[in-house]
Design a protein around this nucleic acid. Structure first.
Length: 338
DNA sequence: TCTGGGGTCCTAGGACCC
DNA sequence: TCTGGGGTCCTAGGACCC
């Protein structure tokens, strides 16, 4: 018997929930995103069913592009309460297994398990999830979260894969650094500029050089990722959010300062109602101007507060510090808790 | 491809103090 | 008076993830 980390990833989650409640959609390309109208500008795909992915439709793609690529898809608006409810059913079910469950967003969870046969456990869990909820999932098995997370992507949908420290070099070694969980396009490009293209090359890189280029924490951490290391503790302790934010992208740019201030005030009041009693210590305002330049301004409050009027006034004061003039496509407010 | 919304963490630079 | 470092706090931006 030994400890394993499993990562469970619900397949095409939002689209799958929509198909469950409308079985006529099964087998058709289904795209969930924005308000469900794919002609609305400045909206993107949240989730595409596997049938829709065949047409090159994927998360983050502008809805209007999705419509061009797959005009016959069924387009649906995001229905968060429905996904929260489906997610909760899965997470509750997971707790009936002899595992520790760390919920990681609506459609993911890490599981800590002590077993001789993690594949058998994974298949049991998959069967139960499908029997009880109608959803399918992929499960990755590893020595730590990083490995389990990557393994879960190997055979989607409905796959079970194992990636361990033993198999890491042969499975991951020749892949690009961006295959690692935490290295995106920007960092991948910077690494390539240093001649570090593959996981093996990054694993063998000089930590001092990486620290000089990427900072004292990030530099060594990149090499750590390439060695297949990662957190192996699965904790049941519920996540305590550091803060909350709301932002709105307008279908058409805002040019009226009074309208902007009204939006800022509304976002701040919304946030103030969601603090759950936690004291707000900092307020940040985000402004994205045409064409696509984003700036933030923030202020530490004189003292922690959960008073809505104080938070609203603070947000407006921060907003007034911006150099105004250009049309605005997005406004956002975030609060940080003490 | 004209590019959402909600999070987390890290970095760099300036202010200020000793 | 020109000038040293270190430590801490704050701010703005960047990168990544789902």
């Amino acid at each position: 018997m030994r400890d394993w980390v499993l990562h469970l990833d619900l397949d095409a989650f939002m689209a799958a929930v929509e198909i469950l409640r409308n079985p006529e959609l099964r087998g058709r390309p289904v795209v969930v995103g924005g308000n469900g109208d794919p002609t609305t500008p400045r909206t993107v795909v949240a989730t595409a069913s596997y049938e829709a992915r065949e047409y090159g439709v994927h998360s983050g793609l502008p809805m209007r592009t999705a419509l061009r690529r797959c005009p016959d898809a069924v387009y649906l608006p995001i229905d968060l309460p429905a996904y929260e409810s489906a997610s909760a059913a899965v997470m509750t079910l997971l707790h009936t297994f002899p595992v520790t469950v760390e919920v990681w967003g609506l459609d993911e969870a890490f599981l800590g398990a002590r077993t001789d046969d993690p594949e058998a456990l994974a298949r049991d869990i998959q069967r139960a999830v499908t029997d009880k909820t109608g959803l399918t999932c992929s499960i990755g098995i590893g020595d730590n979260k990083h490995q389990a997370k990557l393994a879960a992507q190997f055979e989607k949908p409905s796959g079970v894969s194992r990636l361990t420290t033993d198999t890491w070099p042969e499975v991951m070694g020749e892949r690009p650094t961006t295959a690692l969980w935490g290295i995106g396009a920007k960092t991948g490009k910077k690494l390539a500029d240093l001649g570090l293209r593959t996981v093996t090359q990054l694993a063998a890189a000089d930590p001092t050089e990486l620290a000089a280029r990427f900072g004292p924490t990030n530099g060594p951490w990149l090499r750590y990722l390439a060695l297949g290391k990662g957190e192996s503790t699965v904790t049941t302790t519920p996540w305590v959010p550091r803060g909350h934010s709301h932002e709105t992208t307008f279908t058409q740019d805002l040019t009226d300062p009074a309208a902007m201030r009204a939006q800022i005030a509304a976002l701040a009041v919304r946030l103030a109602a969601e603090t759950e009693g936690r004291p707000v210590v900092r307020v940040t305002v985000k402004v994205r101007s045409a064409p696509f330049t984003t700036h933030t301004r923030q202020a530490k409050l004189p003292e922690p507060t959960h008073d809505a009027a104080t938070i609203e006034q603070a947000a407006l004061a921060v907003f007034d510090r911006f150099d105004h003039g250009r049309p605005v496509r997005l406004l956002g407010v975030s609060v940080e808790y003490g």
